[in-house]
């Protein structure tokens, strides 16, 4: 927790949080401030350049790009968050449990995660889409499941070092349940690592939404998403070479902000040891024993 508070005070972290705050605002009010209906096709202005009416121009069926970007922000980010949330749930809890809840669960969970890691990503997504139907939630379910091993591994790695920690043993000797130990001693040591991974995974998931949309899995046209726009704009590169710039920039800036935030947290956490663990160089003069001596 201290590490997180420390991280937020760093300049890059502040900047990243500001950018992410802006993205959240876009998500909330994006479709209401959009100047046009994102689905409205203006056949008189197809593949138009930026103008007073269409600030970022129009796409191949004459839809306003700015409106689509604004309206698409919610779907893009929510989709990524959905996947990451599922990954967190399926990764962090088993990761902690694998360290503290017995060898059987440890072995089983390790094998399951190994299996998941061996799955080829795109093929798994297509299979899920075929099985559960092709939609955004189904696609994100696939992404979330495949993100789980990452969370599982980092959580387990961070927690396994604490299994032998003496303060964990001390808690056990007071008769603490394993759940209580995890809650009071393990969780806050693992949290910074999990947050870093979440930020990185969020960035990754945003890109994945884009590439899946590119393949036609997930969000179905004509609903706007950043990745979907990028994909369709690429097809009209010859007529409208600057087309992909706006959605690409949005994706890049959001991903960069998430990565910067992750880096800042990692910096504040140092080499994995909480900053508070370092002993003082000069020890505090021991006032009490001085008083006792008198």
């Amino acid at each position: 927790m201290r590490a997180l508070r420390l991280a937020v005070r760093l300049r890059p972290a502040k900047l990243a949080l500001a950018v992410l705050g802006l993205v959240v605002v876009l998500m909330a009010v994006g479709d209401t401030i959009a100047p046009y209906d994102p689905l409205h096709q203006d056949t008189t202005a197809i593949l138009a350049g930026p103008s007073a009416e269409h600030w970022l121009g129009t796409d191949y069926v004459g839809r306003d790009v700015l409106s689509r970007l604004l309206a698409g922000s919610r779907l893009s980010v929510v989709a990524a968050a959905e996947a990451v949330g599922l990954g967190l749930l399926l990764g962090v809890l088993p990761g902690l449990a694998s360290v503290y809840f017995g060898r059987v669960f440890e072995w089983l969970s390790l094998r399951v995660m190994d299996g998941l890691m061996a799955l080829p990503f795109i093929i798994f997504a297509i299979a899920v889409a075929a099985l559960l139907g092709n939609g955004l939630h189904q696609a994100m379910f696939a992404v979330g499941v495949l993100l789980a091993p990452t969370f599982y591994r980092v959580t387990r790695a961070a927690a396994i070092g604490l299994r032998q920690a003496q303060y964990v043993e001390a808690g056990t000797l007071f008769g603490a349940t394993r759940w209580r130990i995890v809650r009071t001693h393990v969780w806050q040591k693992v949290l910074p690592t999990v947050v870093v991974t979440t930020a990185t995974a969020m960035a990754g998931a945003l890109l994945v939404v884009s590439s899946l949309t590119f393949l036609g899995i997930g969000v179905q046209p004509p609903a706007p998403t950043w990745g979907g726009m990028l994909a369709s704009d690429l097809g009209y590169l010859t007529q409208r070479p600057f087309g992909p710039v706006a959605p690409a920039l949005l994706i890049i800036v959001t991903v960069a902000a998430l990565n910067a935030l992750a880096d800042a947290i990692r910096d504040a956490t140092g080499d994995g040891a909480p900053a508070s663990a370092a002993p003082l160089h000069e020890e505090v003069p021991d006032a009490i024993s001085a008083a006792v001596r008198r």
Partner: peptide, 17 residues
């Protein structure tokens, strides 16, 4: 130094039991 949780205050450590 190792048997007290570095992120838990002294009083909370004593309260733990």
């Amino acid at each position: 130094l190792r048997s007290l949780d570095p992120d838990v205050t002294v009083l909370d450590s004593v309260v733990e039991g």
